[in-house]
Design a protein around this nucleic acid. Structure first.
Lengths: 190, 190
DNA sequence: TTCTTAATTGAGCCGTCAATCAATAACAAC
DNA sequence: GTTGTTATTGATTGACGGCTCAATTAAGAA
């Protein structure tokens, strides 16, 4: 019994279901049928709204990136000094909404997909550039080689994500945050 | 025209081809047919020697891990002091045989596969444990929180691998090495 | 009421891919 | 030269997954 105005709900449910499904099945074994079932609809309807499986994956990625960006932006408004800005960025990276198991697993799979899929690659480059730019802005007054340090921080964050995706005995998000903040602290005091 | 004693060559060729194919096609789009074609034989022969596609992927991973372990071991024999040991390990991680684009791409895909495939996961845990143990042994005389620092170093290395897999403008292996060594240096001088 | 439009799905087409099998060819051993 | 073993492949099978389509239902517009 079709009610009207379902498109937003359906799209939203599919995006959520895609992320969950990536986490439990892995990107390799994902199927439109499974995503649709989890979202409570037929595969045909999923295709109706998204056109293709690739579009579903891209929409899921955009959602993850959007939430991430919002978290960072939100954390930055309350930060005044460069040091506070750094802390805010790192905290945002490991905030619960971003560092949830589901989302972390999704990230890992986006990285893989970016190796061959142009659009995914482009989105990931935008994320990289934005994080780098945020870090640089905060680091410039504090470090004599901000570029280098930003690269190191970014790499460590990425690495902690990857490791989180594989762990059974989870490192808490707080421990990850502290590890990166320690690194920054040590790297700044010369 | 079949010659005898082909098994070792065929297995080797298939392992190499699997790694190359992961790099160019991505783990999602990999097929036995493509691997076999690249290795210069029919898909049926690939199945004859390995039994299944999963076995091929596992064999490729074991090969990568074996080369990695050999590189680390080789670098460590010439190291006497703890500091030299640290440098040797990091150098080995980014040595050409391990940090080649092909191999880096393979690593990323192993991580993804480890999310759901038990054997892959186990192999990856062994690698993690070994790297961690090597680092700890060198760090214990130098740091008052070697555990923490080993985790940080491991994460940064993993992160640099992931980033390498996506880059067009490649960071040289030397730059990656320096970044990690810098981190260690800063983290040790308290 | 009638028409249009959105929502929704079951059935099915088409392609692909892992895995199997039967058949062939070369070699070795006796 | 007969027998057995290894190497090798083309053809085939069986399953599965992305995607399409025609058909159905209901809501709103005219």
């Amino acid at each position: 019994m079709p009610r009207i105005g379902m498109e937003p709900q359906r799209r939203d449910a599919l995006v959520r279901a895609t992320i969950s499904e990536i986490a439990v099945s892995g990107a390799a074994d994902i199927t439109v049928a499974r995503i649709a079932r989890r979202a409570g609809m037929s595969p045909a309807l999923a295709h109706h709204y998204f056109g293709s499986k690739d579009n579903m994956l891209l929409a899921a990625m955009r959602h993850v990136l959007f939430v991430f960006a919002a978290e960072v932006r939100g954390a930055l408004v309350m930060a005044d000094t460069p040091r506070e800005r750094l802390t805010a960025i790192v905290r945002a990276c490991f905030a619960p909404s971003n560092f949830r198991d589901e989302v972390v697993a999704a990230w890992l799979n986006f990285y893989v997909q970016a190796q061959r899929e142009g659009q995914t690659r482009r989105l990931l480059h935008i994320y990289h550039a934005r994080l780098r730019s945020n870090l640089m802005y905060a680091l410039r007054p504090l470090s004599d080689d901000p570029e280098r340090l930003a690269e190191g921080i970014g790499a460590m964050i990425d690495g902690l994500y990857v490791r989180q995706a594989l762990r059974r005995d989870n490192l808490t998000s707080a421990a990850s945050t502290d590890l990166v903040l320690d690194y920054i602290e040590k790297a700044l005091t010369r």
